[in-house]
């Protein structure tokens, strides 16, 4: 008996340790970046343009660019992804074709982001002649996010009890009515959470926007979706590897990283609040 209990304690201990380690890694990252970057964060850093070869000034255009491009990504990928998920989960019959579609989506999620970048150049920049622009980059990031959105949306739809569908149909609802009024509302919290997690990943990507629209430095903010833009992850990449005075701009690089992390954190927080609100609303 005693041995068994020791076993158990060891097991729980290991599991707890693993969980703790994960949290610890996150804490170390945040602490390290904050410690090195917090000193440069001030109003000028957040609201100014880079000056004197990026050794001074702020990252305002990169913040705006990242938000702008993520907005395009959102507008493109959420509607498309959710519709695809509804089709796959509610309308297709289980069979070879659905199996192939699902496998394709899963594999799409595994494609390296640089490959999406190249594909984006071929399709949006050259094919559709959108040029290197916010639009091309946003759509490329959208492609990257799609498999994520489809997979989480499908899961959320599947989690809605079958009795909601049957109950609605038995009352004379059409299939679309039962989905729209009785299935989708209950899947939306899950869909939103998954989607925003996917989008926050996309916001931090560098490779896909590298060839499709991001610029090293720009004198002005993008005025339309066909303009080039600056972005936080790329700015960070330049400051930490491509700059002529790397040591000098290191605090700025850490400051940029901190802003990027906070931006992503705010997005995730929004998702949480959204989900909480919606859950309360639909539970009535």
């Amino acid at each position: 008996m005693r041995f068994k209990r020791l076993d158990e304690m060891f097991g729980f201990g290991m599991l707890g340790l693993s969980a703790l380690l994960v949290v610890l890694i996150l804490c170390v990252i945040i602490f390290d970046i904050s410690a090195k970057g917090l000193s440069v964060i001030n109003w000028e850093f957040l609201s100014g343009f880079p000056r004197e070869g990026m050794t001074k000034g702020g990252i305002f255009p990169a913040i705006v660019g990242t938000i702008f491009v993520t907005l395009i990504t959102t507008l493109f990928s959420i509607p498309l992804g959710v519709c695809a998920a509804i089709y796959i989960s509610e309308y297709t019959r289980e069979g070879t074709l659905t199996g192939i579609i699902r496998a394709a989506i899963r594999n799409l999620a595994g494609v390296p982001s640089i490959v999406y970048g190249l594909f984006g150049v071929a399709l949006f920049v050259q094919g559709f002649r959108f040029g290197t622009s916010v639009l091309s980059a946003g759509l490329t990031l959208g492609l990257l996010t799609l498999p994520w959105i489809i997979a989480t949306s499908e899961e959320a739809l599947r989690a809605v009890p079958q009795s909601y569908r049957e109950g609605a149909l038995a009352l004379g609802a059409t299939k679309w009515q039962s989905i729209y009024t009785n299935v989708l509302p209950h899947a939306i919290p899950g869909i939103l959470t998954g989607s925003i997690l996917g989008l926050s990943r996309a916001a931090g990507e560098t490779a896909p926007i590298l060839f499709t629209g991001v610029a090293f430095s720009l004198p002005a903010l993008p005025g339309s979706v066909f303009d080039q833009f600056m972005a936080l992850p790329y700015h960070l990449y330049i400051l930490s590897t491509q700059h002529h005075a790397i040591e000098q701009v290191k605090p700025l690089a850490y400051g940029t990283a901190l802003v990027l992390i906070v931006l992503v954190f705010v997005m995730n927080l929004t998702a949480m609040i959204f989900r909480y609100r919606l859950r309360k609303k639909f539970q009535v």
């Binding site: 009890p161 009795s163 909601y164 049957e166 109950g167 609605a168 149909l169 038995a170 009352l171 004379g172 609802a173 059409t174 009785n182 209950h186 639909f282 539970q283 009535v284």
Partner: peptide, 20 residues
Amino acid sequence: VNIRRKIGMVFQRPNPFPKS
């Protein structure tokens, strides 16, 4: 749809929708 309007159904487990 019309058939199901003429022929209603009550299920084994009560399945009210999570609405008012």
